[in-house]
Amino acid sequence: MEIVFTIDKLELVAQQIIAQQPNKVILFNGEMGVGKTTLIKQLCKELGVLDATSSPTFSLVNEYETTANQIVYHFDFYRLKNEMEALDMGADDYFYSENWCFIEWAEKIPNLIPEHHSVITIELLPDGKRHLKLIHL
């Protein structure tokens, strides 16, 4: 799936992503400020998370429950120094839990990513629109 969108169409974009039935472990790639966290918040809403969502920059992971009693984990590994820190916090247990795992800055933990995952790459275009690409691995 590949689309170009404006931020005001984020709800529709999140619906389209869910309709693609991505793997439950999704890596979010893109420059800082491109909208990864904003998209994750909208995906959580589309999945039925009613609680307020925020970036787990300092806690590394936030956990949410959907109205269908599914669990969504949102990871932000930007501040990690090495993969051992992720292992120490039990990241591999989360990734293989069969719950939704939305991972920002996954390039910090390349050896911990499950074989079957999806990748969303977001790029900011010169006109302010975003180019999004979703692939399944």
Rank of each mutant, 00 (worst) to 15 (best):
Q16A: 08
I18A: 04
N23Y: 15
V72A: 00
V61K: 14
E46L: 01
L39S: 09
I7F: 14
K36N: 05
I18D: 05
M32W: 06
K45W: 04
F5E: 08
I18M: 12
N29M: 10
D51T: 11
T6F: 14
F28M: 05
S54V: 11
T57D: 14
N23T: 12
A19C: 10
T66S: 04
L12E: 04
F28E: 01
V13A: 01
Q70F: 01
Q21R: 09
M32R: 03
L12W: 11
G35S: 03
D51Y: 09
N69A: 09
S55V: 11
P22E: 14
G48Q: 02
Q15M: 01
T53K: 06
K36Q: 02
T53I: 14
S59G: 10
V34A: 03
C44N: 01
V61S: 11
F5G: 07
L50P: 08
F28R: 06
E31K: 08
D51R: 15
I17T: 08
V4F: 13
L43K: 00
T57L: 01
A19T: 15
A68S: 09
A14T: 04
K24C: 05
L39Y: 02
D8E: 15
L43V: 01
E11P: 07
Q70R: 01
N62M: 10
L50G: 14
M32H: 00
K41A: 10
I18G: 03
A19N: 15
I71N: 06
N62S: 13
A14Q: 04
F58G: 13
F5R: 11
Q16T: 13
